[in-house]
């Protein structure tokens, strides 16, 4: 394999695009509601959480509906991408065996595919914000930056998960358990300020905590995100991505031994 020629870069981008549009069409074609289905799950979660925590338990968080909804959609993107990426190599031997297939593109396509429901959920989020009187401002221009940071962080995790799940058959189970744990270790329906200081320090190790803080600062409070923390997350994510991609490419020529 030679290096990155312009043709190969272009082909890689087009391949990701082809795989993403395939996934979207496959997922939503032939369903009466089409892409609207992508909204059903987060909205259901919103209803449950709102009823349980705002109405029954009387939790005190400003703009609670928009708060929960932003948490749910960002987490869903994270969780669905990682769960899918874990299996994307082990369940696709036909693709891995194709001589001119850049296999790393499959992982990128998985993360991009799951970004679509996230983006589709943004307009309903805007509606919730308006209803609840949240006031976003100029800092909205920073939203894509936070999305890019989350994307980078997830891609790093996905490369490790996809590569390790080929030789080790229990990685899938481990990842699913960690995702379940992560769901509660991420302030989706609660706020970290409700926790003890020790718990807060522990949770600070979870990058999703900072990503969600970023989204909420921008969307709910019209403030700029905490760049210093997000900067650290981003730099660590880039390092992780480099490592993950290296592990993935090293394993790539061994995948077919194991599948």
């Amino acid at each position: 394999m030679t290096g990155l020629t312009p043709r190969r870069i272009r082909h890689g981008i087009e391949l990701v695009w082809a795989l993403v549009s395939r996934d979207q069409k496959a997922r939503y074609r032939n369903t009466a509601l089409g892409l609207v289905w992508a909204l059903v799950h987060p909205l259901l979660f919103l209803c449950v959480f709102y009823f349980l925590f705002a109405l029954v338990l009387g939790i005190q968080i400003e703009h609670y509906a928009a708060y929960v909804f932003s948490g749910v959609i960002a987490w869903t993107w994270f969780q669905a991408s990682i769960a899918e990426a874990t299996q994307c190599i082990s369940s696709n031997p036909g693709l891995v065996a194709q001589p001119r297939m850049p296999v790393a593109a499959i992982v990128v396509a998985t993360v991009v595919s799951n970004l679509v429901p996230f983006l589709i959920s943004l307009p309903p989020l805007l509606v919730l914000m308006l209803i609840e009187g949240a006031a976003p401002g100029l800092s909205l221009v920073a939203l894509p930056a936070v999305i890019v940071i989350q994307f980078t962080m997830m891609l790093a995790v996905c490369y490790f998960a996809a590569a390790l799940n080929v030789p080790f058959r229990d990685v899938q189970q481990i990842i699913f358990s960690l995702l379940l744990l992560g769901y509660f270790a991420t302030p989706i329906f609660y706020d970290t300020s409700m926790l003890s200081e020790g718990a807060q320090r522990l949770l600070a190790l979870n990058p999703m905590v900072h990503v969600l803080d970023g989204y909420r600062a921008i969307l709910l409070h019209g403030a700029w995100p905490d760049w210093s923390t997000l900067g650290i997350v981003f730099v660590l994510s880039l390092v992780g991505l480099g490592l993950g991609l290296t592990v993935f490419q090293m394993g790539r020529l061994r995948f077919l031994e194991e599948i």
Partner: peptide, 28 residues
């Protein structure tokens, strides 16, 4: 090798043709 690798049953022949071509290393 696997002539239908990457193809999807719900998509049309035309759509699958483009996916398959891309998997085989062709540009759009």
């Amino acid at each position: 090798l696997d002539l239908n690798a990457g193809m999807h049953n719900e998509l049309t022949g035309r759509e699958n043709l483009f996916i398959s071509g891309s998997i085989l290393g062709l540009l759009m």
